[in-house]
Design a protein around this nucleic acid. Structure first.
Length: 605
RNA sequence: GGGGCGGUAGUUCAAUUGGUUAGAGCACCGGCCUGUCACGCCGGAAGUUGCGGGUUCGAGUCCCGUCCGCCCCGCCA
């Protein structure tokens, strides 16, 4: 292989010697070769300035006729986003012309040779730090959007996180093992993305919702420390923090208890924060029992930086004459309050708007409130229904005082907590009731193994493979809803980033749990038989976690949309506007798969 | 499946009560310009007002339907 073949490719004899960001005063006098895109051209006729952009960084290159007549002449043809290779000499700028806004602003490159590598269509929006372009425009022109510094930084942060995670886990003896993308549909959990099989007409693979069962298989197979940074797929509706395909750090270890798993998780997080973002977070992470999180914050993923807390008043209104509250309690629901002291900034109009918001968007029945005036008088549409005892109880439990504003929800626990939790975070942020910490990292622990579904039946709180606490095993028969699980969540700044648990390694326990969940014996065997058989093949005690990688990157980057930390994300309707996916396929492709499209009647034309 | 906000030039926006030829900034194109970095000056081009239907003498504007983007509920172990 000759090394003299350079002249035959597009770059000719020139090769890049430096990145734009490296062009600093220490290189003054050196000849450099730069490659990149025309960020901006400023043509003064006799002298032409071009901001050359490379990896999101800029350096000014200068074209002067006396440096190169030809390069100067051709620089007049340059347009935004043209692709260039330039050779030139680094020069110090005169004091008046230094640009303090650029890291390379003390110097510039006087060009002696210009090689135009490619022309480009005008960019649909400016390639700048901030953009006000509509998100659909940004997604349709994703390549231009990705050239913007925030996206360049986000991708670099993701990269640094990958390296950090792999480093930590490799040090700890974890093996990175890939699991199939073409997997089997399982009945529980989210809706599957299906892939039709050509070799087995009428049969389908499912893209994995997570490698949960596969990694348990790996434990049984004798790889006692496994991890993977792996794509997962769930065909459910999207949100700002939810994409149909997303990445998880998936990890499992055998012969451990919960503390060993949490220790690894803390280490991964501490090192990731440090190595990818330069942030120090403190160990050991705070642990909040699930029941406490629900009681104080109304959420199993609380942002404890917000200084507002909920108060439970259920017992105070049991048997109340106030029908709205009493009915909720009689129906098995709760009465809870969000007290906000010194709430003079919230006007009556604000309260009305909040009521409209929680009724319309969160399904609340209403938003009862009490305002305590400066003269300690209670202003409220509901307080006239309260007994004296109830007034005293409310005052004592909420600490109400002049200036306080109390919001109430009387409803089923999930909805009441949901509404008040949302008000807590929204109003806490709006009113600045925060403690000033930048990072709030915590574990939520002591989840119940089961919870009641709307129809009263028992369902798993997280997934059906979570092991109960050993000491609660006998409760499986007597009082399954009191069985505690080994599950925990990791929450950062109110965002659930990951969760984990010990898994059932004994098939009898797993069978019993499936039974409690309402699976008939035959049903359990047909759906989970391969797992149950696998457990019988000598399954070691094992556990691990799954950690939302995209969300972690999002939180670390200080962003609030997953789309800004994923190179090619989907819109809320699951489309890729760049590639225009999903799309129709040739009928021959359908024939091969023995598929026929049957459109719903409403779509027939 | 439901609620909310939005859709006018490449882009970001404007357009009185339904009324003349739908305007502006940036971008773009042409010309000029030797120190700009939000370069400047002169000139120019650019529109299926998301799409379809309706009301009207007349629709960007009103009505109905539909598509698309974003936020949220449901859903997401």
């Amino acid at each position: 292989m000759s090394r003299e073949s350079g002249a035959r490719d597009a770059l000719g004899e020139l090769r890049r010697t430096h990145a734009a960001a490296e062009i600093t005063a220490s290189l003054v006098g050196s000849e450099v070769v730069l490659a990149g895109w025309v960020h901006k051209r400023r043509d003064h006729g006799g002298v032409i300035f071009v901001d050359l952009r490379d990896r999101g960084e800029l350096v000014q290159v200068v074209f002067r006729p006396d440096a190169s007549q030809e390069a100067h002449a051709r620089a007049g043809e340059l347009r935004s986003e043209y692709v260039l290779l330039v050779r030139g000499v680094v020069e110090r700028r005169s004091a008046e012309t230094v640009n303090p806004k650029l890291t390379t602003g003390e110097v510039e490159v006087e060009v002696t040779e210009l090689r135009l590598l490619n022309a480009a269509t005008p960019p649909p929006f400016p390639i700048e730090e901030e953009t006000d372009a509509d998100e659909s425009v940004r997604l349709r022109h994703r390549l231009h959007d990705l050239r913007r510094p925030p996206l360049q930084r986000a991708m670099r942060l993701r990269h640094a996180l990958y390296q950090s995670v792999r480093g930590v886990l490799a040090e700890r003896g974890f093996l990175e093992i890939e699991t199939p993308m073409l997997a089997k549909s399982t009945p529980e959990g989210a809706r599957d993305f299906l892939v039709p099989s050509r070799l087995h007409p009428g049969s389908f693979y499912a893209l994995p919702q997570s490698p949960q069962i596969m990694k348990q298989m790996l434990m049984i197979a004798g790889f006692d420390r496994y991890f993977q940074i792996v794509r997962c797929f769930r065909d459910e509706d999207l949100r700002a923090d939810r994409q149909p395909e997303f990445t998880q750090i998936d990890l499992e270890m055998a012969f451990v208890g919960i503390e060993e798993v949490l220790e690894v998780l803390e280490e991964v997080m501490v090192r990731g924060f440090r190595e990818a973002a330069g942030i120090e977070i403190e160990r050991n992470f705070r642990r909040i029992p699930h029941a406490e999180a629900m009681a104080r914050y109304g959420s199993d993923r609380p942002d404890t930086r917000i200084q507002l807390e909920l108060v439970d008043l259920t017992e105070s209104f049991r048997g109340s004459a106030f029908r709205a509250f009493r009915a909720a309690v009689d129906g098995g629901g709760i009465v809870k309050c969000l007290p906000i002291h010194d709430a003079q900034d919230l006007s009556r109009g604000d309260i009305d708007r909040l009521e409209g918001f929680v009724k319309k968007e969160l399904g609340a029945r209403g938003l009862a409130w009490i305002r305590v005036n400066e003269d300690a008088e209670w202003q409220s549409p509901i307080v006239k229904f309260f007994s004296d005892e109830e007034r005293v109880a409310v005052a004592e439990k909420t600490g109400a005082r002049p200036g306080s504003l109390l919001f109430f929800q009387a409803d089923q626990a999930s909805r009441a907590n949901g509404v008040l939790s949302r008000l807590r975070t929204d109003l806490g942020q709006k009113l600045g009731r925060v403690d000033g910490r930048e990072w709030d990292v915590l574990f939520v622990v002591d989840f119940p193994l089961f919870e009641r579904a709307d129809d009263g039946s028992l369902t798993y709180a997280h997934q059906p493979f979570v092991a109960p606490l050993e000491e609660d095993l006998q409760l499986l028969d007597e009082a399954p809803e009191r069985v505690r699980g080994t599950h925990y969540d990791v929450v950062v700044n109110g965002v659930e980033l990951g969760s984990g648990s010990l898994r059932n390694h004994r098939s009898d326990v797993q069978r019993r749990i499936l039974e409690v969940l309402g699976y008939a014996k035959a049903d359990a065997e047909s759906r989970f038989g391969f797992l149950l058989n696998a457990l019988d093949a000598g399954a070691p005690p094992h556990g691990g976690f799954a950690f939302g990688y995209d969300r972690w990157a999002m939180v670390l980057a200080g962003l609030d949309s997953l789309r800004d930390v994923i190179a090619f994300p989907k819109t809320q309707r699951g489309q890729d506007l760049l590639m225009d996916a999903p799309g129709e396929v040739e009928s021959a492709q359908l024939d091969e798969l023995a598929l026929r499209i049957v459109r719903p009647p409403s779509e027939k034309s």
